[in-house]
């Protein structure tokens, strides 16, 4: 399973997104706002889930802001961190 697929699965199953399947999530859809409709509390949960499932820590705002834009950006962040 690719990083993107795994992220989508986590979003649907662990953040309990309703009326959407992992396959239906667009890679470049915004995670927050009008995209998937996640909110600020979901962001907290997502940061913890990323650490739990990928062993990658989003340390601060500087890392979080660009990483938490879309599945694309989050996957790129995780893969870059994993290579370190």
């Amino acid at each position: 399973m690719s990083t993107k697929e795994k992220i989508k699965k986590i979003l649907v199953e662990e953040l309990n997104l309703e009326d959407i399947t992992p396959e239906e999530i667009m890679d470049d859809a915004p995670l927050f706002g009008d995209g998937l409709g996640l909110d600020s509390l979901d962001a907290v949960e997502l940061v913890v889930l990323v650490q739990k499932h990928f062993g990658v820590e989003i340390k601060d705002m500087d890392e979080g802001r660009p990483a938490l834009q879309s599945v694309d950006s989050l996957a790129a962040f995780i893969e870059a961190k994993s290579r370190l």
Binding site: D39, S40, L41, I58, K59, D60, M61, G64, R65, L68
Partner: peptide
């Protein structure tokens, strides 16, 4: 950004103190 949620998380992960009002809400 994201209601300051990441900043708050950052504070707690560093083991510091985060103060919040529990009696009012804004926005949503």
């Amino acid at each position: 950004f994201l209601g300051g949620s990441l900043e708050m998380l950052e504070v707690l992960k560093r083991g510091e103190v985060l103060s919040m009002m529990g009696d009012r809400f804004q926005g949503s």
